[in-house]
Simulated assay, not measured.
Amino acid sequence: MTEPKITQLQPMPTDWHRALCVVAHPDDLEYGCSAAIAGWTDGGRDVIYVLATRGEAGIDTLDPAVCGALREREQRAGAAAVGVSTVEFLDHRDGVIEYGPALRRDIAAAIRRHRPELVITLNHRDTWGEVAWNTPDHVAVGRATLDAAADAGNRWIFPELTEQGLEPWNGVRWVAIAGSGRPTHAVDAGPGLERAVRSLLEHRTYIEALTQQDPETYVRDFLTTQTTANAARFGGTPAVAFEVFSR
């Protein structure tokens, strides 16, 4: 019997200057794709983070009022570790983000404000690899981001944004989904992996609530396993994988 052919991942597009990363929670990008982001910022590209929430419902032992402020600080430090200086929060409520026009409008506004060619978000499907159930926050933000990439270019959707001085932006060329079970493209993880480890380690309070393992051991094992799993489909090179939708 012939062995099934492994579909190779294509290199990510490189002819862009600015990326906007839109996710639900602090640490979503650090778990998903910060090794790629470190490589991009090293190459002189501009990367901006927008988070729907401050992750205030993410740690059972911390009151949300305390937790949100702490996780915001950790997120800003994690972003700085991979060369990202602009981090914005949309102040949707953690755990109960609703997909709909309000969320699409907030993300479309961010796209108009920052005018990226590449938009990054996290897995918008119901499951992780058809094995583990995804959270409704990830699903809502991922779907809304895919839709908002088009909304941002249409002046008749959310016309109030134009009235606020946010002119339509039809320059998004790709939306890339990190953590997808159907990846199409990848980025070499090697150059940015050590900074990705440092970036995720900045979420120490969350990690210490999540696992009894030594935080650095946990983080390094997680990111190494994740990137190595994509190597067979990327010429043997550990990689961060994305599902890319062209526009």
Rank of each mutant, 00 (worst) to 15 (best):
E3G: 06
K5Q: 12
L9V: 06
Q10T: 09
M12F: 15
T14H: 11
D15I: 13
W16V: 12
R18L: 01
V22L: 13
P26Q: 06
D27T: 06
A35G: 09
A36P: 01
A38I: 04
A38D: 13
T41S: 10
G43H: 15
G44A: 09
D46K: 14
I48V: 15
E56P: 02
E56K: 03
E56N: 04
E56A: 05
A57M: 10
G58V: 07
I59T: 09
T61E: 10
A65C: 12
G68P: 07
E72P: 10
E72Q: 11
R73D: 05
A77M: 12
G78W: 07
A79Y: 06
A81G: 04
V82A: 07
V82Q: 11
G83E: 08
S85F: 12
S85T: 15
S85K: 14
S85D: 13
D94I: 11
E98F: 00
Y99C: 03
Y99W: 02
G100Y: 08
R105L: 05
A108Y: 14
A109E: 13
A110D: 04
I111Q: 03
L118M: 15
L118S: 02
V119P: 01
V119W: 01
I120S: 00
T121Q: 01
N123I: 11
N123G: 14
N123Y: 04
H124M: 04
R125C: 12
R125Y: 04
D126Y: 01
T127I: 09
T127A: 08
A132V: 10
P136A: 10
H138Q: 09
G142I: 06
G142A: 00
G142N: 02
R143K: 11
R143A: 10
A152C: 06
N154A: 07
N154E: 15
W156P: 00
W156L: 15
F158V: 01
L166P: 09
G171A: 08
V175F: 02
V175H: 03
A176Q: 06
A176D: 05
I177D: 05
A178D: 03
R182W: 08
P183G: 04
D188Q: 12
A189I: 08
P191F: 05
P191C: 08
L193Y: 14
R195V: 01
A196V: 08
S199P: 02
L201F: 14
H203D: 06
H203Q: 08
H203N: 07
R204F: 14
I207D: 04
A209W: 14
T211P: 08
Q212W: 08
Q213G: 04
D214H: 00
Y218S: 07
Y218K: 01
R220G: 07
D221V: 02
F222G: 02
F222Y: 10
Q226Y: 12
Q226M: 14
A229P: 01
N230F: 15
A231R: 13
A232W: 12
R233W: 11
R233Y: 07
V240L: 07
A241Q: 03
V244W: 03
S246V: 06
R247I: 00
